[in-house]
Design a protein around this nucleic acid. Structure first.
Length: 418
RNA sequence: CGGGGGAUGGCUCAGUUUGGAUUAGAGCACAUGGUUUGGGACCAUGGGGUCGUGGGUUCGAGUCCCACUCCCCCGACCA
């Protein structure tokens, strides 16, 4: 992609609307823009990062036997009345009456819809277990949207649901998805803490949260200095670790995932049953598993940035390489840049070519801000020796070699990092 | 919803205390011309503003008063 042909409105100064580092950088790097409080447009760079995260999630969930589907965002309120969550959700749920006079809502989550779907199609234990997921926009009229994409009223969530014939099956799926989550967050370049959590309005007995330690996090987690066991912080809680007795630190975190053993809560209230091997009717045993997909972007940025801007990993970055011809009025430089671009694209490496007629300083600053992990620099200085440069965004280390050597280097790095 | 802060060109802000000669400013960005060209260049010229909205006070309001809207921060909630 040519920089001049896409839409990357970078900002030199920090907009006053942004308080958290990730929000500031996302605005400055031209990834998002606010339409109203808690509602954001994803610009090309933001969307590419989001898509890359989704791809990781799909790969990991597919690999543990889950299937993707897509449920409606528009839902009848009637369904929510059946489970009693109509009241629990309160004003968080966005409701309105359509032209037919139906009371509808925009889905804040999808337990009701998917359980209703299963009710009509699962009748035997032979159809279980089953794990389904979707990546979809959720709507929650939050009391206080905050920190850009960290808490938005319209956001992208991955929600998975498991259906089993018994608790043992649930335990197995729960563990498999728990493990998949660890792989997902690792591939996102995140250090995470997992905590025992309160299931709250979701219901069920057991739940775990996946927390990203970050300065601007909204949640406090007690983390043991010795055994690393973590737990959601509640007022009046002992500071000592219940497991090993050591001291615990309060760590502020961003919650990026939450998984629940729901049991029969939804299947019972919606009548989602099956016949077991003895011909006896039983409620389907469910689990549900959420990841705040759009929230992952700011979480990743919180943990991966420096004074100059964002530092993406190869896998998440909107582009894997940015090519910086420092003087586009010099035909030799521009031609070489175009040649490198073609060669990278031909090898399946996504590149962004900064073809703008801007000074070198502007290009360096923007490239650092936007955070693409590899920068290929083509300028008079090294071209005199017939060389070009390759700079790693993380650490800002630079090597100067021939074009052929640099191309090899890039391919090597991209191969190693997926 | 409670508490605090804010709203002046696309962005960051000054001006509001003490209403008046300000024709509402600056920097950045934008347009044109020129000089530049390895870390957000410089000079010149130019375009762009219902000072959040609506009332009110006054000879006169960006500035004072009232109401409302929107945004941000702290709290309860959540992926």
């Amino acid at each position: 992609m040519l920089w001049s042909k896409t839409f990357i409105p970078t900002l030199k100064e920090t907009p006053q609307e942004a308080e958290s580092v990730s929000h500031q950088l996302m605005l400055r790097a031209g990834m998002i823009r606010m339409l109203m409080a808690g509602v954001y447009s994803y610009l090309p760079l933001g969307l590419r990062a989001l898509n890359n995260i989704q791809e990781i999630i799909r790969q990991e969930l597919d690999s543990c036997g889950a299937s993707e589907l897509l449920l409606p965002a528009l839902q009848p309120q009637e369904l929510w009345q059946k489970t009693g969550r109509d009241k629990d959700m309160g004003e968080v749920m966005i409701r309105f009456v359509d032209r037919r006079g139906r009371n509808v809502c925009l889905g804040p989550t999808h337990e009701e819809v998917i359980t209703d779907l299963m009710k009509n199609h699962i009748s035997s234990y032979k159809q279980l277990p089953l794990v389904l997921y979707q990546i979809q926009t959720k709507f929650r009229d939050e009391i206080r949207p905050r920190f850009g994409l960290i808490r938005a009223c319209e956001f992208v969530m991955k929600d998975a649901y498991s259906f089993d014939k018994d608790e043992a099956g649930l335990d197995k799926n729960y563990q498999a998805i728990h493990d998949a989550y660890k792989r997902i967050f690792k591939r996102c370049g995140l250090n995470i803490l997992t905590t025992q959590a309160d299931p709250g309005v979701m219901g069920g007995k057991v739940s775990h949260e996946f927390m990203v330690p970050a300065k601007d996090g909204e949640d406090l987690v007690l983390c043991c200095v010795s055994c690393n066991t973590s737990q959601a912080f509640k007022e009046g809680e002992s500071q000592d670790c219940p497991k090993c007795g050591a001291r615990r630190n309060k760590v502020s975190c961003i919650e990026v995932g939450h998984i629940f053993k729901l049991g029969a809560k939804y299947s019972e209230s919606l009548g989602a049953n099956f016949l077991d091997a003895q011909g006896k009717r039983q409620a389907i045993i469910m689990g549900c598993y959420g990841i705040g997909v759009s929230r992952l972007i700011p979480a990743i940025i919180e943990q991966n940035h420096d004074d100059a801007g964002i530092i993406w990993s190869q896998e998440i970055s909107p582009y894997q390489v940015v090519i910086l011809p420092l003087d586009v009025t010099d035909k030799k430089i521009l031609d070489l840049a175009a040649e490198i671009y073609r060669e990278l694209e031909d090898s399946g490496i996504n590149a962004l070519l900064d073809d703008r007629n801007e000074r070198a300083g502007v290009k360096f600053k923007d490239a650092d801000l936007v955070g693409i992990p590899l920068q290929v620099i083509i300028g008079q200085e090294s071209l005199k020796e017939n060389n070009i440069e390759l700079k790693a965004r993380r650490g800002q280390e630079k090597i100067t070699k021939t074009k052929a050597a640099i191309m090899e280097e890039i391919k090597e790095i991209c191969k190693k990092n997926g």
